[in-house]
Design a protein around this nucleic acid. Structure first.
Lengths: 155, 155
DNA sequence: GCCTTTTTTGTAGAATTATACAATGTTGTA
DNA sequence: TACAACATTGTATAATTCTACAAAAAAGGC
């Protein structure tokens, strides 16, 4: 129950701006998941999800920072979000579902540190810089091994 | 007043874990800055500072995410936090005061985008990937020009 | 199965944070 | 200086989030 609820929370936050916990509760209910504010308060803390402010329009919404996800590995690994993967030299461009780039970047930094020099993530695009001695083929197979679901996306 | 208070907030959050706004208020007072909870609530929102949770020990503290800082450019540019700068090929490793790496990474991404491919920041270490056609010397002088205080740190 | 231990959850209320409003301060213009 | 326009702040309170506690559910051990 808890795991699928947290998975649903990630999915919802990746798609919409959610401004408070009551609102998140409503979206969860639409997916048939019932819970209370107290429960998702604990979920958000556990998942290290933060409330971000947008000074432009004075709004606030929940956001999943890039380093949040090693805390709940079981969840991340079952959420892929990867749309496409392409290479150009030692650069790898990964397109993701909206909002997922940071998360996937965090997983890659953690799981593929030996062949990755670093990564920069936008909202739905992730740029991975491979080390000089790492081939794109090596990186591909590493990804397939470490991120369940990734293999489906290679065309 | 507001600007120096926000500068002080960045300095404080870079050095200590602050768990709520009342606590931040006390640290500010120690620096001779008087304000109310309402004021720093607005400051934190404007600076896009978030409250992060640590599920390990059930604590929470304020944190400055990497993309927070373009919002308050006047402030960032007067905070250095750089401890050391080293190069290895087209890689640049910048050690910073604890908590400052993200912030400095954001400044470098913004100010040195033409010679920087991307950067990844930990808590006190920043890895900058230079473009192939940018020399470390070019990057150094660019840094010195763009980040007041940086020149002091080159040994 | 039955008992124990641990985890998850809801309720209710405490703690924290955000904000409407009024007041004060600041900036620019003449 | 005097005025208007705008920005910043404090007060009081509203809104939101967290958490102590008890109950329920799940996981292990025998």
């Amino acid at each position: 129950m808890k795991e699928s609820r947290q998975r649903a929370i990630l999915r919802i936050l990746g798609r919409r701006k959610v401004h408070n916990q009551e609102e998140l509760l409503k979206y969860l209910e639409k997916e048939g998941i019932k819970a209370t504010q107290a429960t998702i308060s604990r979920d958000l803390a556990q998942m290290k999800i933060v409330k971000m402010h947008n000074p432009e329009d004075d709004s606030a919404f929940f956001s999943v920072p890039s380093d949040s996800l090693q805390v709940v590995p079981d969840i991340i690994h079952s959420v892929s979000g990867i749309v496409s993967i392409d290479f150009s030299g030692s650069l790898c461009v990964i397109k993701t579902s909206p909002g997922y780039a940071n998360m996937i970047g965090a997983v890659i930094d953690t799981k593929c540190g030996d062949m990755v020099m670093g990564s920069v993530a936008g909202d739905d695009t992730l740029l991975v810089v491979l080390r000089n001695d790492a081939s794109s083929e090596d990186f591909k197979s590493h990804l397939m091994e470490k991120i369940p679901g990734a293999e489906l996306k290679f065309v």
